[in-house]
Design a protein around this nucleic acid. Structure first.
Length: 274
DNA sequence: GAAGACCTGCTA
DNA sequence: TAGCAGGTCTTC
Protein backbone atom coordinates (compact mmCIF):
# COMPACT_ATOMS: atom_id res chain seq x y z
CA UNK A 1 0.00 0.00 0.00
CA UNK A 2 2.48 2.66 0.90
CA UNK A 3 4.23 4.65 -1.79
CA UNK A 4 6.42 7.70 -1.29
CA UNK A 5 3.67 10.02 0.08
CA UNK A 6 2.43 7.45 2.58
CA UNK A 7 5.95 6.62 3.81
CA UNK A 8 6.78 10.33 4.10
CA UNK A 9 3.58 10.93 6.06
CA UNK A 10 4.40 8.12 8.46
CA UNK A 11 7.99 9.34 8.95
CA UNK A 12 6.78 12.88 9.73
CA UNK A 13 4.20 11.66 12.19
CA UNK A 14 6.67 9.41 13.99
CA UNK A 15 8.93 12.46 14.41
CA UNK A 16 5.96 14.54 15.61
CA UNK A 17 5.17 11.81 18.12
CA UNK A 18 8.64 12.20 19.52
CA UNK A 19 10.00 8.83 18.53
CA UNK A 20 13.37 10.40 17.68
CA UNK A 21 15.59 10.62 20.71
CA UNK A 22 13.87 7.80 22.55
CA UNK A 23 15.60 4.68 23.73
CA UNK A 24 14.34 1.24 22.71
CA UNK A 25 13.70 -0.49 26.03
CA UNK A 26 12.32 -3.74 24.67
CA UNK A 27 11.79 -5.47 21.34
CA UNK A 28 9.04 -7.94 20.57
CA UNK A 29 8.91 -9.67 17.19
CA UNK A 30 5.64 -11.49 16.54
CA UNK A 31 6.39 -12.52 12.96
CA UNK A 32 9.97 -13.72 12.65
CA UNK A 33 10.29 -13.18 8.90
CA UNK A 34 9.71 -9.46 9.33
CA UNK A 35 13.33 -9.28 10.42
CA UNK A 36 15.95 -9.90 7.78
CA UNK A 37 18.44 -11.49 7.39
CA UNK A 38 19.13 -11.80 11.12
CA UNK A 39 17.48 -14.11 13.59
CA UNK A 40 14.95 -12.51 15.90
CA UNK A 41 17.32 -13.06 18.80
CA UNK A 42 20.29 -11.28 17.24
CA UNK A 43 18.12 -8.47 15.87
CA UNK A 44 16.62 -7.89 19.31
CA UNK A 45 19.95 -8.08 21.05
CA UNK A 46 21.55 -5.53 18.73
CA UNK A 47 18.65 -3.09 18.84
CA UNK A 48 17.64 -3.16 22.50
CA UNK A 49 19.22 -0.39 24.54
CA UNK A 50 20.01 1.83 21.55
CA UNK A 51 18.40 5.21 20.88
CA UNK A 52 16.56 6.13 17.69
CA UNK A 53 18.57 9.24 16.81
CA UNK A 54 16.91 10.08 13.52
CA UNK A 55 14.10 8.97 11.21
CA UNK A 56 14.59 9.47 7.48
CA UNK A 57 13.19 8.31 4.16
CA UNK A 58 14.45 7.58 0.65
CA UNK A 59 11.94 6.37 -1.93
CA UNK A 60 9.73 3.85 -0.13
CA UNK A 61 12.40 3.04 2.48
CA UNK A 62 12.20 4.41 5.98
CA UNK A 63 15.31 4.47 8.12
CA UNK A 64 15.87 4.58 11.87
CA UNK A 65 19.41 5.74 12.60
CA UNK A 66 20.48 4.19 15.87
CA UNK A 67 22.92 5.50 18.44
CA UNK A 68 24.98 2.34 17.88
CA UNK A 69 25.80 3.56 14.38
CA UNK A 70 23.66 0.89 12.77
CA UNK A 71 20.50 1.63 10.80
CA UNK A 72 17.18 -0.15 10.66
CA UNK A 73 15.94 -0.07 7.06
CA UNK A 74 12.18 -0.57 6.91
CA UNK A 75 10.19 -1.41 3.80
CA UNK A 76 6.41 -1.42 4.28
CA UNK A 77 5.73 -3.31 1.03
CA UNK A 78 1.97 -3.80 0.54
CA UNK A 79 0.44 -3.36 3.95
CA UNK A 80 2.93 -2.16 6.57
CA UNK A 81 2.17 0.74 8.87
CA UNK A 82 2.70 2.15 12.35
CA UNK A 83 0.59 3.00 15.32
CA UNK A 84 1.25 4.11 18.87
CA UNK A 85 -1.62 1.83 19.96
CA UNK A 86 -1.68 -1.97 19.98
CA UNK A 87 -3.53 -3.73 17.15
CA UNK A 88 -4.50 -7.13 15.83
CA UNK A 89 -1.75 -7.32 13.24
CA UNK A 90 1.22 -6.03 15.20
CA UNK A 91 4.30 -7.83 13.90
CA UNK A 92 6.95 -5.92 15.84
CA UNK A 93 6.72 -3.77 18.95
CA UNK A 94 9.25 -1.38 20.53
CA UNK A 95 8.75 -0.15 24.05
CA UNK A 96 10.32 3.30 24.18
CA UNK A 97 11.71 5.37 27.03
CA UNK A 98 9.30 7.75 28.77
CA UNK A 99 6.20 5.76 28.00
CA UNK A 100 5.23 5.40 24.34
CA UNK A 101 5.14 2.09 22.51
CA UNK A 102 5.73 1.84 18.79
CA UNK A 103 3.64 -0.80 17.01
CA UNK A 104 4.53 -1.99 13.52
CA UNK A 105 1.48 -3.63 11.99
CA UNK A 106 1.32 -5.47 8.69
CA UNK A 107 -1.67 -7.63 7.79
CA UNK A 108 -0.01 -9.31 4.84
CA UNK A 109 3.39 -9.83 6.48
CA UNK A 110 5.31 -8.67 3.40
CA UNK A 111 7.14 -5.80 5.11
CA UNK A 112 10.81 -6.19 6.02
CA UNK A 113 13.10 -4.72 8.68
CA UNK A 114 16.83 -4.94 7.98
CA UNK A 115 19.52 -3.99 10.46
CA UNK A 116 22.51 -2.77 8.45
CA UNK A 117 25.89 -1.17 9.08
CA UNK A 118 25.63 1.00 6.00
CA UNK A 119 22.33 2.03 4.37
CA UNK A 120 24.17 2.77 1.13
CA UNK A 121 24.30 -0.93 0.35
CA UNK A 122 20.57 -0.72 -0.22
CA UNK A 123 20.25 2.89 -1.38
CA UNK A 124 22.84 2.36 -4.12
CA UNK A 125 20.38 0.09 -5.89
CA UNK A 126 17.80 2.86 -6.09
CA UNK A 127 17.46 5.63 -8.63
CA UNK A 128 17.10 9.18 -7.29
CA UNK A 129 14.22 9.85 -4.91
CA UNK A 130 11.41 11.33 -7.00
CA UNK A 131 11.03 14.42 -4.82
CA UNK A 132 14.70 15.39 -4.74
CA UNK A 133 16.65 17.60 -7.14
CA UNK A 134 18.67 14.60 -8.24
CA UNK A 135 15.54 13.50 -10.03
CA UNK A 136 15.86 16.24 -12.64
CA UNK A 137 14.31 16.84 -16.07
CA UNK A 138 17.63 15.99 -17.73
CA UNK A 139 18.09 12.79 -15.80
CA UNK A 140 14.52 11.77 -16.55
CA UNK A 141 14.72 12.52 -20.27
CA UNK A 142 17.91 10.54 -20.67
CA UNK A 143 16.70 7.62 -18.60
CA UNK A 144 13.55 7.36 -20.74
CA UNK A 145 15.29 7.89 -24.08
CA UNK A 146 17.97 5.29 -23.63
CA UNK A 147 15.48 2.53 -22.96
CA UNK A 148 12.80 0.94 -25.04
CA UNK A 149 10.40 -0.18 -22.34
CA UNK A 150 6.77 0.51 -21.67
CA UNK A 151 6.53 3.75 -19.74
CA UNK A 152 4.50 2.42 -16.80
CA UNK A 153 6.79 -0.42 -15.72
CA UNK A 154 9.78 1.81 -16.36
CA UNK A 155 8.73 4.54 -13.92
CA UNK A 156 7.59 1.89 -11.43
CA UNK A 157 11.16 0.54 -11.49
CA UNK A 158 12.78 1.78 -8.27
CA UNK A 159 16.26 1.60 -9.79
CA UNK A 160 15.21 4.31 -12.28
CA UNK A 161 13.30 6.60 -9.93
CA UNK A 162 12.48 5.80 -6.30
CA UNK A 163 9.07 6.37 -4.75
CA UNK A 164 6.37 5.75 -7.33
CA UNK A 165 3.95 2.85 -6.96
CA UNK A 166 0.83 1.76 -8.76
CA UNK A 167 -1.46 4.57 -7.59
CA UNK A 168 0.78 7.54 -8.32
CA UNK A 169 2.02 6.11 -11.62
CA UNK A 170 -1.55 5.83 -12.90
CA UNK A 171 -2.23 9.33 -11.61
CA UNK A 172 0.87 10.82 -13.24
CA UNK A 173 0.20 9.14 -16.61
CA UNK A 174 -3.41 10.33 -16.52
CA UNK A 175 -2.33 13.86 -15.67
CA UNK A 176 0.24 13.84 -18.49
CA UNK A 177 -2.23 12.22 -20.93
CA UNK A 178 0.14 9.40 -21.76
CA UNK A 179 -0.89 5.80 -22.42
CA UNK A 180 0.75 3.42 -19.92
CA UNK A 181 2.00 1.11 -22.68
CA UNK A 182 3.78 3.79 -24.71
CA UNK A 183 7.45 2.97 -25.26
CA UNK A 184 9.67 5.26 -23.22
CA UNK A 185 11.77 6.22 -26.25
CA UNK A 186 8.69 7.17 -28.28
CA UNK A 187 7.87 10.12 -26.02
CA UNK A 188 8.87 13.51 -27.38
CA UNK A 189 10.41 16.33 -25.34
CA UNK A 190 7.07 17.95 -24.59
CA UNK A 191 5.54 14.69 -23.38
CA UNK A 192 8.56 13.90 -21.19
CA UNK A 193 8.50 17.36 -19.72
CA UNK A 194 4.79 17.08 -18.95
CA UNK A 195 5.21 13.64 -17.42
CA UNK A 196 8.15 14.79 -15.32
CA UNK A 197 6.09 17.63 -13.88
CA UNK A 198 3.11 15.32 -13.36
CA UNK A 199 5.24 12.88 -11.33
CA UNK A 200 6.52 15.65 -9.06
CA UNK A 201 3.05 17.13 -8.79
CA UNK A 202 1.08 14.00 -7.90
CA UNK A 203 3.64 13.00 -5.26
CA UNK A 204 3.78 16.47 -3.72
CA UNK A 205 -0.02 16.67 -3.57
CA UNK A 206 -0.10 13.16 -2.12
CA UNK A 207 2.27 14.22 0.67
CA UNK A 208 0.23 17.36 1.30
CA UNK A 209 -2.90 15.23 1.71
CA UNK A 210 -1.14 12.70 3.97
CA UNK A 211 -1.33 9.89 1.43
CA UNK A 212 -4.06 7.90 -0.25
CA UNK A 213 -6.39 5.33 1.31
CA UNK A 214 -8.88 3.32 -0.68
CA UNK A 215 -12.18 2.10 0.65
CA UNK A 216 -12.88 2.17 4.36
CA UNK A 217 -11.72 -1.25 5.58
CA UNK A 218 -8.98 -1.75 8.09
CA UNK A 219 -6.82 -3.43 5.46
CA UNK A 220 -6.22 -0.05 3.90
CA UNK A 221 -3.51 2.45 4.56
CA UNK A 222 -3.80 4.39 7.81
CA UNK A 223 -1.38 6.97 9.09
CA UNK A 224 0.23 6.81 12.53
CA UNK A 225 -2.82 8.54 14.04
CA UNK A 226 -5.12 5.90 12.54
CA UNK A 227 -6.54 8.30 9.97
CA UNK A 228 -7.18 7.50 6.32
CA UNK A 229 -5.09 9.48 3.84
CA UNK A 230 -6.86 12.58 2.60
CA UNK A 231 -5.81 12.02 -1.00
CA UNK A 232 -8.55 9.46 -1.63
CA UNK A 233 -11.04 12.01 -2.97
CA UNK A 234 -8.42 13.59 -5.19
CA UNK A 235 -7.55 10.48 -7.19
CA UNK A 236 -8.38 10.92 -10.88
CA UNK A 237 -7.53 7.50 -12.35
CA UNK A 238 -6.50 4.79 -9.88
CA UNK A 239 -9.47 2.70 -8.79
CA UNK A 240 -11.90 4.66 -10.98
CA UNK A 241 -12.36 2.21 -13.88
CA UNK A 242 -15.87 2.38 -15.30
CA UNK A 243 -16.28 5.90 -13.97
CA UNK A 244 -16.14 8.99 -16.17
CA UNK A 245 -12.85 10.72 -16.81
CA UNK A 246 -13.07 14.01 -14.92
CA UNK A 247 -11.44 15.74 -17.91
CA UNK A 248 -13.41 14.41 -20.88
CA UNK A 249 -16.24 12.24 -19.52
CA UNK A 250 -15.15 9.03 -21.27
CA UNK A 251 -15.46 5.93 -19.08
CA UNK A 252 -12.05 4.95 -17.73
CA UNK A 253 -10.78 1.49 -18.67
CA UNK A 254 -8.84 -1.10 -16.73
CA UNK A 255 -6.13 -3.24 -18.31
CA UNK A 256 -3.16 -5.21 -17.03
CA UNK A 257 0.29 -3.78 -17.72
CA UNK A 258 3.34 -5.61 -16.43
CA UNK A 259 1.10 -7.69 -14.15
CA UNK A 260 -0.34 -4.59 -12.48
CA UNK A 261 -3.92 -3.39 -12.70
CA UNK A 262 -3.89 -0.16 -14.69
CA UNK A 263 -6.64 2.41 -15.06
CA UNK A 264 -6.52 5.03 -17.79
CA UNK A 265 -8.65 7.18 -20.06
CA UNK A 266 -8.79 5.65 -23.56
CA UNK A 267 -9.44 9.08 -25.10
CA UNK A 268 -7.16 11.44 -23.16
CA UNK A 269 -4.39 8.84 -23.02
CA UNK A 270 -4.65 7.51 -26.56
CA UNK A 271 -2.03 4.97 -27.33
CA UNK A 272 -0.13 5.31 -30.57
CA UNK A 273 3.64 4.79 -30.44
CA UNK A 274 5.77 6.05 -33.37
C1' DG B 1 8.22 -9.84 -20.77
C1' DA B 2 5.66 -13.27 -17.76
C1' DA B 3 4.57 -16.13 -13.84
C1' DG B 4 5.00 -17.59 -9.28
C1' DA B 5 6.17 -16.68 -4.43
C1' DC B 6 5.41 -14.32 -0.26
C1' DC B 7 0.46 -13.36 2.94
C1' DT B 8 -4.27 -11.89 4.69
C1' DG B 9 -8.68 -10.03 4.05
C1' DC B 10 -12.17 -7.73 1.47
C1' DT B 11 -15.51 -7.76 -2.47
C1' DA B 12 -18.13 -9.59 -6.22
C1' DT C 1 -15.49 -19.24 -3.70
C1' DA C 2 -12.61 -16.92 -6.92
C1' DG C 3 -10.28 -12.86 -7.71
C1' DC C 4 -7.98 -8.97 -6.40
C1' DA C 5 -4.96 -5.61 -3.54
C1' DG C 6 -0.79 0.20 -2.48
C1' DG C 7 5.52 -4.25 -3.61
C1' DT C 8 9.47 -6.72 -4.67
C1' DC C 9 12.17 -10.80 -5.63
C1' DT C 10 13.35 -15.04 -8.10
C1' DT C 11 13.14 -17.91 -12.03
C1' DC C 12 12.20 -18.77 -16.33
Amino acid sequence: MPELPEVETIARQLRARGVEGRKILSVKVNWARTVEPLSVASFSRQVRGTTIDEISRVGKWMMFLLSSGKTIMIHLRMAGGFSMEPGQHDRLVFKLSDGPTLHYRDTRKFGRWKLVDDPQEILDKLGPDALTRQFSPTYFREAMRKRHRMIKPLILDQSIVAGLGNIYVDEALWEAKIHPERRSDSLDDAELSTLFKAIKHVLAIGVKNRGTSLGDGKTNYRDVEGEAGGHREKVKAYGRSGKPCVRCGTFLEKIVVAQRGTTFCPVCQSGFDQ
